[in-house]
Structures are given as structure tokens and as C-alpha cells.
Design a protein around this nucleic acid. Structure first.
Lengths: 241, 241
DNA sequence: CAAGTTCAAAATGCATTCATTTCAGGCCTT
DNA sequence: AAGGCCTGAAATGAATGCATTTTGAACTTG
């Protein structure tokens, strides 16, 4: 249900409400969204000063809406504001990373618990299908394909939880670690690939039985394992595997 | 144009960093914090339009910082912004409330799980002490005292989780339901008071055994029960004793 | 020669100003 | 007389301007 990028249209309804779940304000159209993507996609190095004036030119807006957007992104944790010294890309210490991974793990655990109460048989079938695809990618040693399916499975569980506030929180904290997460995923998960597959089978099994508490535990442990695999290898940036 | 000598004080440290966890920007000193309190404390009725100009006068700032603050509060979910129609206090549907309660329950569950990994014996003693106090209040039928201890226990567990990102999220979503939560707590929990006490004993027991997964389940169920007690009685506001 | 100081350029924070949009009331049409 | 239309006032969104702070580098000094 993530809105497609195209805002081609206009406000289909004059009363398009904008809330924390779709955090933007009007803010000169899509400025906030574009700027968030710009940051999340890593165009600015970690800890770098955010060149307010330069971004104004790049996005074709004046300083006022840009500064409003920066404030919002800071409140989302992507930037940090230093009084009279502007915004920086918020650097993530290894401690921050651990905390965020645990938090996201908790949100996934909650999603699993709620999903067990509400998921339909059709949705479970869909996830089983994704799981089979993922397994095929595993056999072919296709990492990108594997991760795509993996993401889709976790996203499906999140959707099945039917909780917009939860999804919103998950998206917010997910954005915060997105850069690092990519690195972690692709670089250092290979040695526990088989283990991850087994965990996913347990996830699917618990889901079928609608065993909410159990699924909750499995999902949290699953993310913990990912985290350990990631942080034990590269705490700062050790591109070496 | 603040002729007040208010800036005498100063940044105790020139490098006071402002991040998502302490969401404010400089924003004319404490404007964001004050405005957030103003909203959370319910000075504006639910769904009311936020009188931008009036608030500017009340807080003695111009529109620019006020609008920045409103954007941030909207991204926190306290307000909603309607394009070209300003900000409103975000109304909470019963669906919103259910979602937020579940989310907060998930965060408490996570806190319990993490606390079991990290809590010290001294902290457990402290919680046992609070529990005894709470029980005394229960015997005396002192609701306010009871809830104060209750809050302190949950806060102690959250602290023991040693996760700033989690605490921040908990605070953010807690602020969102603060008004309703008060109503819910005081009004309609009386009939399950004894049950709540038993649940708290189970919480303490699991904490002593450092049984993280189990504590997680108990805490989530505990909040679910609170929620049911609250939403079944007063969806809007039933000031009944 | 290194460390501290000074001063101008740049950047930040806020106020003010300007263009659009919304909202309200009265007028006209049917 | 009811409903739609039009016009002016108010409000919102963004741009610009100004005062203060930071920054960086040249300069002085021990």
C-alpha cells in the first residue's frame, strides 16, 4: 500500500490529510519526501554537514521550506541539528546501530504477534509462495534475489498485522539504518545463509499455526542473528568481508 | 525583537547536539517543547484548528519558527496538516487508539525482553519495592497512588532495557495517547484491579528469572487487558467516576 | 615557529513581505 | 425563495531581508 512515486495527479480530494504517518506537510510539494530519499540513499556522507543553500538550489526551493524539511528529518532521526551550526547527517555509532536493530526486531516481533491474530489463509499462501521463491534463489546462490524475497516476506507479515502506526514506526526506524543495513545484508550474511533459511521455515510454521507469542520470539531472534552477523564483521566500515 | 535579556544564559556546551531523540531544533529556544506540552496537555480540543497567529502571540515568536514547530509536531503525529488549511489537533479514532495501544504494548514487551538481559539485581530490588508500595496503595484503594507506582514500574523496566531509541519511541507514541490514556486509566480499570495486580506479580516473577520471552508475552497481554478495559467503556470521553 | 587573536565572509535564525488559496457574505439567477 | 456565483477579507505557503553567530584565515605575539 506504499503509494507509488507518481504524484502526477493533484490533490484528488481537496481534503488530503497529512499526518505523522505520511509525515510530509505540503512543504513545496514533495520536497520532504525527495529530501528524505536523498539522505537515505546516502548521497551525503555520514556525519557530513548538510549544505542548506546548495540543497535549496538543487531542489529549487527557498530556504524557508528547506529548513522546515530539515527540522522534520531531524525529528525523524536522520539528521541532527546543532544550534547555529546547521544540520549534519546523523552519524550512527555502533551503539546506535545495536539499539536500532533491537528496536526494529521488537517491531517485527510485534508484527508477527498481531499478524497471527489477523492473517488470512490467502495471505499465508502468498507468503509460502514467496518463501519457495526465496529458497530457489538460495539454491542458485542469488543473493539479491534472495534478499528481495526476504524483504517481501517481512513486509507481508508487517502488512498482515493491520496496524498503520506500527508500519509507520517500522518505516521510520528502517530508514534510519537503511544504508548500513544494505552493507550488512550483502556483505556478511553468507555464512549463516542456511541458518537464516531454517529460521524462515520456523517463521512460516509458526504463522500457519497462528502461534503469535512463538512467532514473536522467532522474529526477534532472527533479527538479532542478522545483527550479530553484521556488527561482528564491520562495526565502522571494514569493507573486507 | 525579544528585548528580554533572556539569552543571558548560554549554551553550556557549544556542541549541544540536537537529534531525533531530543527532537527539538533550536526553534527559538524551547518553543517546540512548550508547544508540544501545550498540545499534549490538552489545551486545544480534539480536532480543533490550531490558531497559528494566536499561538505566535502567546509564545512570542513570529510565524516562521511557529510553523517549523507545527511541522515537527505533525511528523510526531500530534497534529495533522491540511494543505492550505493549516494544522489541526489530530483526532484519534477508536481504530487509532487500538493501534497505538498495541504498538505501545509491543514496545513494552520489547523493553521487558531487553531488560531481562541487562537488569541488575539492584534494579530488580527497586522494582520489588515499588511493587510493594503499589500493593499497599491497592489495599488502601488509592487509585492515584497506585497508578503512580504502576507508571514508575513500567518506566523502570523501560530504563533497564538500556535502549535510548526504544525509550524515545515509547515517549513519542505515549505522548500521542496521553490525554485518552489518563481518562482510560482512572475511569475504567477498577473492575480488573485485582487482576492487574496478579499480572504485575507475574511480571516481577519473570523479571527475577530473567525470562525475557515470557516477560514479553506478559507485558503485551497486560497492556491488551488495559486497552480492552478502556475502550469497551469510554470511546470518546465519559467523565464518569 | 607555534599558539593565540582579530576581522571579514559565510551561514544560521528569525522577522517581514509577497503571492495564492481558502473562506464568508452578499448578489444574482432561476 | 433557494441555490449558485462572485467578490473581498483572512489565512496559508513561500521568498526575501536583516541581525547574530560561526568559521576560516591572515596576522600578531611570545
Amino acid at each position: 500500500m506504499t503509494a507509488l512515486p507518481a504524484q502526477i495527479t493533484v490533490q484528488p480530494t481537496p481534503a488530503q490529510i497529512i499526518t505523522g504517518d505520511v509525515p510530509a506537510g505540503s512543504l513545496h510539494g514533495e520536497l520532504l519526501t525527495h529530501l528524505r530519499d536523498y539522505i537515505v540513499e546516502g548521497h551525503l556522507p555520514d556525519g557530513a554537514r548538510v549544505p542548506e543553500r546548495e540543497l535549496c538550489e538543487r531542489f529549487g526551493v527557498s530556504r524557508t521550506p528547506m529548513r522546515e524539511a530539515l527540522k522534520v528529518l531531524a525529528s525523524e532521526g536522520l539528521l541532527e541539528l546543532l544550534p547555529n551550526r546547521g544540520a549534519r547527517v546523523r552519524p550512527l555509532s555502533s551503539q546506535d546501530l545495536i539499539e536500532l536493530f533491537d528496536l526494529i526486531g521488537g517491531l517485527e516481533a510485534l508484527a508477527g504477534r498481531l499478524a497471527c491474530e489477523r492473517i488470512t489463509d490467502a495471505e499465508i499462501d502468498e507468503i509460502e509462495h514467496l518463501h519457495k521463491d526465496m529458497y530457489a534463489f538460495y539454491l542458485q546462490r542469488d543473493m539479491p534475489g534472495y534478499f528481495r524475497c526476504n524483504q517481501m516476506i517481512h513486509h507481508a507479515i508487517m502488512s498482515a498485522a493491520r496496524n498503520a502506526a506500527l508500519s509507520s514506526a517500522y518505516a521510520t526506524y528502517g530508514a534510519r539504518i537503511k544504508r548500513v543495513r544494505y552493507a550488512a545484508n550483502f556483505a556478511h550474511q553468507r555464512d549463516r545463509w542456511g541458518e537464516a533459511i531454517r529460521e524462515h521455515e520456523a517463521i512460516l510454521d509458526a504463522l500457519r499455526r497462528r502461534a503469535g507469542a512463538e512467532l514473536s520470539d522467532i522474529l526477534f531472534a532472527h533479527l538479532r542473528n542478522k545483527m550479530v552477523a553484521a556488527t561482528h564483521h564491520s562495526t565502522s566500515d571494514d569493507p573486507e568481508k
